Amino acid sequence: MNGEDVYGFVEPKSGKTLWYLIPRVNIQWMNVVLETFATEAGANKDQIILLVQDRAGWHRSQKVNLPAGIETEFLPAYSPELQPAERLWSLIDEAIANENIESMDELEERLSKRCCVLSQMTEEIKNLTNYHWFKYS
């Protein structure tokens, strides 16, 4: 891999997360991640998932292929405080902050392990991302 980027998805109500390590951030990889996410999250015509995203260019491109069962809502510009997933990044950073990482393979290994740990921390993540003003139907 040329680099490591992490896509993270969170269901605030349950604290469930899905994580994807990818070599770069672009529309091609966004499409791969969305397809994988839709499959793993069980999205389909009868199970609709609302995906809240910021306004990054690769999120809004006409070249993004939304899988069946995924609908998107874009946050207002410059409003990261409204995005629950933004609170995940500090948890990811704990695995690599202030560490000497010798290679991309080591970085990938550390990030992979951290994502596995975080996938099990549903209660902590729920407390971090389930804003009190969220309303569920």
Rank of each mutant, 00 (worst) to 15 (best):
I48F: 01
Q53S: 11
S103I: 11
E102A: 15
L51I: 12
M30S: 05
I92M: 15
A85L: 09
G3E: 14
N127C: 07
E99Y: 11
E71V: 14
L128E: 04
L50K: 05
L75H: 08
N98M: 09
K126P: 05
T122G: 00
K113N: 13
Q53N: 06
G42C: 09
E86G: 03
Q120D: 04
H59Q: 10
E108C: 10
A85I: 13
Y7K: 07
Q83L: 15
W58V: 02
A97Q: 10
R87W: 07
L107S: 03
L34V: 02
N65S: 02
S112M: 02
M121C: 10
F37L: 07
T72M: 09
N26P: 09
N31H: 11
S61P: 07
S137N: 08
E108T: 11
W29P: 00
R114D: 03
I49V: 14
L21G: 08
N127Q: 05
K135N: 14
L111F: 10
E94S: 08
R110K: 15
L128V: 13
I96C: 09
K126T: 11
S112R: 07
T17Q: 04
A43N: 06
S112T: 15
A41D: 04
W58Q: 08
K45T: 10
K45M: 13
N31G: 10
C115Y: 02
L128Q: 03
E124A: 14
A43S: 06
Y20K: 07
T36S: 15
V64H: 01
P76W: 11
K126Y: 06
V10W: 11
R55C: 09
E35Y: 06
N44V: 04
A77W: 02
F9G: 02
V117D: 11
S14D: 05
E73W: 13
S90R: 12
L51T: 13
Y78M: 00
C116K: 10
R55T: 09
Q28V: 12
L111T: 03
A68Y: 03
E94T: 12
A56K: 08
E35C: 03
Q28T: 15
W133P: 01
A68T: 08
Q47S: 14
